[in-house]
Nucleic acid binder design. Structure first.
Length: 464
RNA sequence: GUGAUUGUAGCUCAGCUGGUUAGAGCGCUGGUUUGUGGCACCAGAGGUCGCCGGUUCGAACCCGGUCUUUCACCCCA
């Protein structure tokens, strides 16, 4: 028998019972909100055909795809000459499948394959792991969960407003109060490029501006120069960048003015102000929502609204983000499907809630009550009680071995079980059971019905 | 992919310029208590010092490789 030390592949992790309870709490809260807003859940396979995945994420993305070796004799049909040409020559022959890299491409594939069955606008959410052969760092893994929601097949700005409402509902449910939903519109950035006299260069502008938070204005300036922006353009940009954050309405007014001559830019300002109006019409207010004209986000395919959520005073980057895009499914031959989507960063939300101590009692007690006993006969007696408790909806377990009562109590204590029932000969003879509250140390001996009542009552209002 | 960094008991970490049998706290097991957990006290178990190779009379310590961890860049969730 070999005795190798067990280990995990690089960049992967286990989720133990406590972590799972907390993750489920996060995911249930999010799912609950998605469903409330009419989104339906979708799952797609962990693996896709490599042809579906390659070419969708750029050259670097292709490098980061996990490829799956073909089953069977995967070298069959590979010649010595091909091997000599290097790995890229034989790759398509030995690997036809790969692990999904994100949820968007599989979703696009799904929409195209089911275009005739789906009812548009289609609102779907999807929560599944994705894999990237990246070099892991803290908060960056090779296997991690994405949690996406998208609406495809409509241009309505109601979708944008609903996304804001969902974000507010979810973060409110977590007890987060100090966070900011930054919102901008890609068209405003396009208009901005026109305004500074560099039309059509918004792509480069965005990539640099996106780093403003991280590296500061001076370095961004240098990068813009490197990217071929002239000094005059940068001078025009400077006052806009340095503009103090103000009320959304004021910032909008400012941009409406300077982008007045740009058709696209004005469109962006209009869209954004409509989204904010819709938000209020739908019963939300603009608290936590902040128009940030410098928000760019790296992804190049956004065409309308873009958002990003940051928890303030926590050393963790954005916890949610998204935006509107055109032509989600174009690469699969179905043009003109536009949509808007966003995603919650589950791992980061986990870290934030942990850091702020907002998990509370989540995962505190796996069961309500443990039945302890002094021997085989008492244990058998306890089995009947066990099923009665469960029938009442009280989660219960019985200590499955006959061992010292002390050990059984220690087990309950370690698992944070709030109550134990003790069954000994005294209880059996008098047809009663003893219930002990391990938190307070109180204990009473009573008939089973009475004890059940106490437990049911406790379950209904845990804080009494 | 580039440049750094980490690895010693289940966990967090000590371990002097290379020198006998590698330590602590927490945790674990047992006891003080054969009808009661947490607290206290007592005792005990547990380590091929990440792995492979090299230098040396001698390596946890020095050198090379490898894996792993963390960090910056790139990119991203």
């Amino acid at each position: 028998m070999s005795n190798t030390k067990p280990s995990l592949p690089k960049g992967t992790r286990d989720f133990g019972p406590v972590e799972m309870a907390r993750r489920n709490y996060i995911l249930e809260t999010i799912k609950d909100t998605f469903r409330l807003f009419g989104f339906e859940q979708l799952e797609t396979p962990a693996m896709e055909n490599l042809s579906t995945l390659t070419g969708k994420y750029g050259d670097e993305g292709d490098q980061l795809l996990f490829k799956i070796l073909n089953s069977g004799d995967y070298l069959k049909g590979v010649t010595i000459e091909e091997v000599a040409q290097g790995s890229s020559a034989i790759l398509p022959k030995i690997a036809e499948k790969g692990l999904r890299y994100d949820l968007t491409v599989p979703f696009a594939r799904f929409v195209v394959m089911n275009r005739n069955e789906l009812v548009f606008p289609f609102k779907r959410f999807q929560i599944q792991p994705v894999w990237r052969a990246d070099r892991p760092q803290r908060g960056r893994y090779r296997e991690f969960y994405q949690c996406d929601a998208d609406v495809v097949g409509t241009d309505s700005l109601v979708c944008e407003a609903e996304i804001l409402l969902m974000i507010k509902r979810v973060f409110g449910a977590f007890g987060l109060t100090d966070y900011t939903i930054k919102i901008n519109n890609r068209k405003i950035l396009t208009g901005l490029a026109e305004f500074i006299g560099a039309p059509g260069k918004e792509q480069e502008l965005c990539v640099s501006i996106d780093k403003l938070d991280k590296i500061g204005w001076e370095k961004v300036k240098g990068e813009l120069l490197d990217r071929g922006f002239v000094a005059d353009a940068i001078d025009k940009l400077a006052p806009i960048v340095r503009r103090e954050e103000g009320l959304n309405a004021d910032t909008l007014g400012f941009f409406r003015e300077i982008l007045g001559s740009s058709i696209v830019g004005s469109m962006g300002v209009d869209e954004l102000s409509q989204v904010l109006d819709l938000l209020e019409a739908m019963g939300g207010d603009q608290s936590h929502v902040s128009f940030d004209p410098m928000l760019a986000r790296g992804l190049s395919y956004y065409t309308g609204a873009i958002f990003e959520v940051k928890i303030n005073n926590v050393s963790i980057g954005s916890v949610s983000g998204g935006g509107r895009y055109d032509n989600l499914t174009g690469v699969f031959g179905l043009p003109d499907v536009s949509g808007v989507g966003f995603s919650f960063g589950v791992d980061r939300i986990y870290d934030v809630l942990l850091e702020l101590g907002l998990f509370g009692d989540v995962a505190a007690a796996p069961v309500d009550v443990l039945i302890t006993h002094f021997g085989q006969q008492e244990m058998n007696y306890g089995l009947g009680i066990l099923s009665e408790l469960r029938a009442l909806g009280i989660s219960a377990e019985i200590y499955p071995d006959t061992s010292k009562i002390k050990k059984q109590f220690a087990y309950a204590d370690k698992k944070n079980i709030p109550y134990v029932i003790v069954i000994g000969s005294e209880e059996m003879n008098s047809a009663k059971v003893t219930l002990k509250n391990l938190r307070s140390g109180e204990q009473h001996t009573d008939n089973l019905n009475k004890v059940c009542e106490v437990l049911v009552q406790k379950k209904r209002s845990p804080n009494d």
